[in-house]
């Protein structure tokens, strides 16, 4: 086993006690707490917060809509929250936050997934495409145009997820009939019930035969 690799996130039996456990055990926090002068200096300089932050976050390199980001994130950050809260890409919607609606659908390395059930830290070096990444300058993506033309929405809340899912549905080869489109789009709920027009839009793009 490659136990001498330097990646500190790798598990080897020797380091399976984590850095955080180690520091806890070695009593750094206790030392800070027991030394009033250190504590005062530390809090004045926000050291304690910085140490805590350093320990609680992990580095993440991720490419979103063609742009590379090097970030430090909490392991509990979902890809959805990373996109919306940290990268200000609010096109991707939070509907249920529990995998039940599809509003948060994005493409990761070309595959449609639910960003609300994906931990961002598990998408190391991934290429993510969101609704913001579809248009070329002012030119909308064919699926965006088809949704407008066919009235594929009412309130529009589910629409970014529907569009991301619709593109993938065609690319996967699951848009060969209205029935098939309905089945493979069932992971995207539309509270306004625009389903019929959504299927129209996807059918039109599929029949248009354009490279997506």
């Amino acid at each position: 086993m490659a136990s001498k690799k330097t990646n500190e996130n790798e598990v080897t039996p020797e380091n399976s006690n984590s850095r955080r456990d180690f520091i806890k055990k070695s009593g750094l926090f206790t030392a800070l707490a027991l030394t009033p002068s250190t504590l005062v200096v530390a809090s004045e300089n926000k050291w304690d917060e910085k140490i805590a932050e350093y320990l609680e976050t992990v580095p993440l390199s991720i490419e979103v809509n063609g742009k590379k980001h090097n970030l430090n994130i909490e392991p509990r950050t979902t890809l959805l929250d990373l996109l919306r809260e940290q990268l200000q890409l609010t096109g991707t919607k939070k509907g249920c936050d529990h995998g039940q609606c599809g509003a948060c659908t994005v493409h990761v390395n070309g595959t449609r997934i639910l960003s609300c059930l994906s931990l961002a830290t598990m998408q190391q070096n991934a290429q993510v495409t969101t609704i913001e990444g579809l248009s070329k300058g002012k030119k909308l993506h064919p699926m965006q145009e088809a949704f407008i033309k066919n009235d594929g929405f009412q309130c529009g809340y589910c629409t970014p997820g529907q569009i991301m899912s619709g593109i993938a549905c065609i690319k996967e080869g699951h848009a060969n009939s209205r029935e098939e489109i309905k089945e493979y789009m069932s992971g995207n709920i539309c509270r306004c019930g625009a389903y019929h027009n959504i299927v129209d839009a996807i059918t039109e793009v599929k029949e248009g035969g354009k490279e997506l």
């Binding site: 086993m1 490659a2 990646n7 996130n9 790798e10 598990v11 399976s16 984590s18 955080r20 609680e56 992990v58 909490e74 392991p75 509990r76 931990l119 830290t121 598990m122």
Partner: peptide, 10 residues
């Protein structure tokens, strides 16, 4: 969600 650590098994 409570925070946690995450490590990758090779």
């Amino acid at each position: 969600m409570k925070n946690f650590q995450i490590i990758k098994a090779l």
